[in-house]
Each structure stands twice: as structure tokens, then as C-alpha cells.
Simulated scan of single mutants.
Amino acid sequence: MSESEETFYTADRWQNWLDRVAEEDLDPENEDSARLLLNLQDDTAIAVAKILAAYDDGRLNEEEATEEVADIRDIVLADVDIADEEKAMLIDGVQTSLVCVFYTAEEYIVGGPAEEGSVAEYVDAAAAAEAEEDVDAALGYLVQAGTRIIDGEKLPMDLVEDLEYGFVSEWVNGLDSLQSAMADPEVVEEDE
């Protein structure tokens, strides 16, 4: 490994978060529990943002950047072995939110930001596609929205608040984490 190679994320890091979730007495209505899950999600989004920054700065080429994103995706989206069903569902929600983040990062690296349409238009199109039960199209629209977010366009929060609960709202939640990570890619401390 050369000096220039960075480690963006590790299986150990993800496992540390999972161990914390397993140990905590989680209540999604409780602010501390919600923060732990959000930190878990944000920590992953920050790692993705750092890969995108390294790509934009020329420290990673296209192939290296897509491999780094794929490595994190493989770690984070692997089946989680948590006996507590409720905690497993909460982790699944975090994983679902991050699916769009990974595809967005890969799309941005390979194709750059979407050239047409605003973030709001893509989110609206995704919500409409989900209403028609076309989940693949919904994800595709949000990936395009995500590439615009990476490029600096803001996710309109009023639009987000109006979304029905479902895949689109979960994926937009992930894009919100990515937007925050792009703005401030500081590591979330695991012991916060």
C-alpha cells in the first residue's frame, strides 16, 4: 500500500457501530437512539463523501473511486446478524437509506452530475414512480437527484417533509446524510 492510499472505511468500523446498536437499549422515539442510528448512517455517508472528494481532487481515478465505493457498499449492505428483530429492522432502515448513496456516488464518478432537471424535479418524479410501484425508476430518479446534490444543489427540505413513508423517503433520508457529509466531511466519533 502506497503512502497516498487512504482507508475510507473498514468492516471493523461498521462492526463497531453494529456492536453499539446491539448493546444499546434502542427506542426509535428516543432522541439518543435516533441519534445513534443517524450517526451510523452519517458516518458511512462521510466515508463516501471523502471518496468523492479524493476523486474530484485527482487522488483517486475513476476505477479506484468506484472500487472504494463498492467496498463500503459490500461492508454496509451485508446481512447483519443481530438477534433482536426490532434492532435488525432499524439497521435495515439505515442500510436502505444508504443504498441510494452508494448508487449516487457511483453514478457521479462514472457520469458526473445529471445535466437536466433539478433535485426537486427528480424527487417529485421518484415519488410519482413509487406511487406507480416502479421502485427501480424511483431509485434511478433519486440517483440523478443525488448527483446534483454532490454537485452542490440543495435538497429542498419542505419537499422531503411531504414525502409518504416508503423507499423514496428512506433513500432521500440517505441523500440528506450525503448532503451533510459533502458540506462537512468530519468523522462522526463512535463514542459520542
Rank of each mutant, 00 (worst) to 15 (best):
S4N: 10
E31D: 10
E107Q: 13
A45E: 03
A70V: 09
D12R: 12
K154V: 07
L178T: 02
D92M: 13
A181F: 03
A181D: 01
A120V: 11
E67K: 12
R20K: 13
P28I: 08
N173W: 12
V101A: 02
V101R: 00
L37D: 01
A49V: 00
I75F: 15
K87G: 06
D84E: 08
F8P: 03
R148L: 12
A129Y: 02
N30C: 08
A53E: 14
E186P: 00
A126S: 02
A125N: 04
L38S: 14
E6H: 13
A105K: 05
A131E: 15
Q179N: 10
N61I: 02
D19F: 07
W14L: 08
V99E: 15
E24H: 13
V168L: 07
E86T: 12
E85I: 03
L163R: 10
D134P: 07
D19Q: 11
S118R: 06
S4A: 14
V94A: 00
M89S: 14
G58H: 04
S169C: 07
E68I: 03
G117W: 11
I150Q: 04
K50S: 10
D184K: 01
R13H: 14
A54R: 10
R35Y: 11
E170W: 12
N39C: 09
D56V: 04
A128C: 07
L52N: 08
W14M: 05
E6G: 04
R13N: 09
L139D: 02
S169G: 04
E115T: 15
S2C: 05
E190R: 11
E192W: 11
S97V: 07
A49M: 02
N39M: 10
E161A: 15
R20N: 07
R73A: 15
V94N: 01
E164G: 10
A125L: 01
G152F: 11
E6W: 10
D32R: 11
Q95L: 07
N61S: 13
D42E: 12
G117C: 07
E192V: 12
D134V: 05
G58M: 04
A120M: 08
T96C: 12
E133F: 07
V69G: 05
L175Q: 04
E153W: 03
A49H: 02
R35V: 03
I149H: 01
G146Q: 06
D57Q: 14
